[in-house]
């Protein structure tokens, strides 16, 4: 028995929801209204484009060298000469922040690539109609996610050693359950979709159905999944490099810069502010873009 629907009075009055309008269709021409993307999305896309530009051609944004500073110019506050001021060694903080984009994006994308690559393989295996395989892979995800991400990444760095590539691998492995579960759910959704059933009825073999229908429709979701998770990955990466597990000084990486700023906080605030602002703005921009894309394609994912 289905439960009777309770709808409060206020909710029932305005007939603006699609289900309220069922049966009310008239012959009036329906004008498809293309909803404009919200301002936050446009600003975020612009910022992401800027970030990619800063990572690709940082020398177009500043004429200072991020690694070489003038000792006599140490710890100058922000001003016209140095937009974000200078650090203890007289290096321009703006230049270092701009050049830092490259490291954060590279390690972040690298981590997502590792995690998504392994997560897609495992997720597709788990999403098949094989309960034993599904159970095994799902418990594997449970096991991996029982380790707190930062600690698991630290364990992997202990085994592999410090460095950019190694923290990308570490963050990627820690992210496998996250990606794998999303891909598993997506595979199950596609597997049970009507067009897949029809393809089977049409007489295609299991492999043909999988290769021609299931796989492509799982893979289309991957760019969106990647955008949704790139922000949180950059966040974890910056934490690991703050701990000194990733790139080493004098690399102008944001986490490394913030770790160095701790020694001068008493006298100078700027080295401890701008790199952090860069991290937060980057993570917010990617989250906004990712969430918007996810909502926009939600209906089409299956």
């Amino acid at each position: 028995m289905t439960a009777p629907s309770h709808r409060s009075f206020e909710q029932a009055v305005p007939l603006d929801r699609p289900e309220d309008l069922a049966g009310f269709e008239t012959s009036l021409p329906v004008i498809a209204v293309q909803r404009r993307p919200p301002l936050a999305f446009i600003v975020s896309v612009a910022f992401v484009v800027l970030l990619i530009a800063a990572a690709a051609v940082p020398w177009l944004f500043t004429h200072f060298d991020p690694l070489v500073g003038d000792f006599t110019e140490g710890l100058k506050p922000p001003g016209w000469a140095h937009l974000f001021g200078t650090d203890r060694l007289g290096r321009d903080v703006f230049a270092r922040t701009i050049y830092g984009t490259r490291y954060s994006l590279l390690i972040g994308f690298g981590g997502v690539a590792v995690g998504l690559g392994l997560g897609v393989i495992l997720g597709i295996i788990a999403g098949q109609r094989n309960r034993i395989l599904d159970e095994c892979v799902s418990r594997l995800f449970d096991m991996l996610s029982s380790f707190p991400g930062v600690l698991l990444a630290m364990l992997i760095v202990t085994f592999l050693g410090q460095g950019m590539l190694n923290i990308a691998i570490a963050v990627g492995i820690a992210g496998i359950p996250k990606f794998g579960r999303v891909v598993r759910a997506q595979t199950q959704l596609v597997r049970d979709a009507d067009y897949v059933t029809q393809a089977t009825v049409y007489g295609l073999s299991q492999w043909q159905v999988f290769l021609r229908h299931v796989l492509p429709n799982v893979l289309v979701a991957i760019p969106i999944i990647a955008t949704v998770y790139i922000g949180s990955t950059i966040l974890i990466v910056s934490g690991l490099s703050f701990l000194g597990l990733g790139p080493q000084p004098p690399t102008p990486e944001w986490g490394v810069m913030l770790a160095e700023s701790r020694d001068v906080l008493r006298v100078a605030w700027w080295p401890g502010v701008f790199p952090g602002l860069a991290i937060t703005a980057t993570v917010i921009a990617f989250s906004v873009v990712g969430n918007f894309l996810q909502k926009k394609f939600e209906g089409r994912m299956a």
């Binding site: 986490g255 913030l258 790199p275 952090g276 937060t280 917010i284 989250s287």
Partner: peptide, 22 residues
């Protein structure tokens, strides 16, 4: 919520240190 969920823990700590300790 978005801002706090996107802020690295250690940067928040540095900001609080600057404001309330130094």
């Amino acid at each position: 919520e978005l801002v706090f969920a996107s802020t690295p823990v250690f940067w928040l700590g540095i900001l609080l240190l600057m404001a309330f300790s130094f």
